[in-house]
Simulated assay, not measured.
Amino acid sequence: MNHLLAVAVNERLNEAFEGPRGVGSMFTDPNTAILETLEQLSSEEASMSFHGTTVAAHADHTRFYLWGTNKVLKKGKQPDMDWGESWRITSVNETQWNRIQDGLKNEYFTLMKNIDSVDWNTQTINEALGSLAHSAYHLGAIRQMVKSVKDSQ
């Protein structure tokens, strides 16, 4: 059972962050996953504000909660987290934007490795599934914001 759970969670996280292989899958189409979507944006586009937030803030918030999930899966407890801090980004330059994307990729790939080696219990299952749902939510929010970015040009 644990092996099947790890495989299923990894497949859905992969879909959310890297996209489906071939045609559409459970909830994404080709070139619409988080990492692919962010790579298409300049720092100026990532800094455009919509309803008080930016794609850069969503991306960094995603990196932040994946970091927290990785800590829970490795250490068994939630680290101290300043959730408000993860939303304070209002604009980024190219260097900052690249750093956010690299940090997000690092936390995502770390999570994929952690899921393969985690001792599954109620806490770790809830943490992994919560991060999957949280990632799907932010994927949708980012995709809607990117549509507004592209429509405004």
Results as ranks from 00 to 15, higher is better:
95 T>E: 03
118 V>Q: 12
76 G>P: 11
109 F>K: 10
64 F>V: 01
58 H>I: 13
64 F>L: 02
110 T>L: 09
83 W>Q: 12
121 N>K: 06
35 L>G: 04
50 F>Y: 07
37 T>Q: 02
19 G>D: 05
108 Y>K: 06
95 T>G: 02
83 W>C: 01
45 E>D: 08
40 Q>A: 11
33 A>H: 13
68 G>H: 04
28 T>P: 06
61 H>M: 06
25 S>D: 12
53 T>G: 15
109 F>D: 10
115 I>W: 02
58 H>R: 04
69 T>E: 03
122 T>I: 00
61 H>I: 02
41 L>W: 12
30 P>Y: 15
110 T>P: 05
21 R>C: 13
60 D>W: 04
76 G>T: 01
29 D>R: 10
120 W>M: 12
79 P>V: 11
126 N>V: 10
45 E>R: 10
84 G>Y: 09
121 N>E: 11
23 V>A: 13
65 Y>W: 12
79 P>K: 14
119 D>N: 14
54 T>M: 05
74 K>R: 14
78 Q>Y: 09
28 T>I: 11
42 S>K: 03
75 K>W: 06
46 A>H: 00
33 A>N: 07
34 I>S: 12
27 F>W: 11
54 T>K: 08
23 V>P: 10
112 M>D: 11
95 T>Q: 02
73 L>G: 13
90 T>K: 03
21 R>T: 09
72 V>K: 00
81 M>Y: 15
133 A>M: 07
83 W>H: 08
55 V>Q: 05
15 E>V: 13
89 I>A: 08
132 L>A: 10
32 T>H: 06
121 N>P: 14
58 H>V: 09
60 D>M: 03
110 T>A: 15
26 M>W: 11
33 A>P: 08
110 T>Q: 04
67 W>R: 01
29 D>N: 00
19 G>V: 00
21 R>L: 13
127 E>A: 15
79 P>W: 04
37 T>R: 05
16 A>D: 12
18 E>I: 08
117 S>I: 00
32 T>A: 10
44 E>M: 13
94 E>F: 04
114 N>W: 00
117 S>E: 11
39 E>V: 00
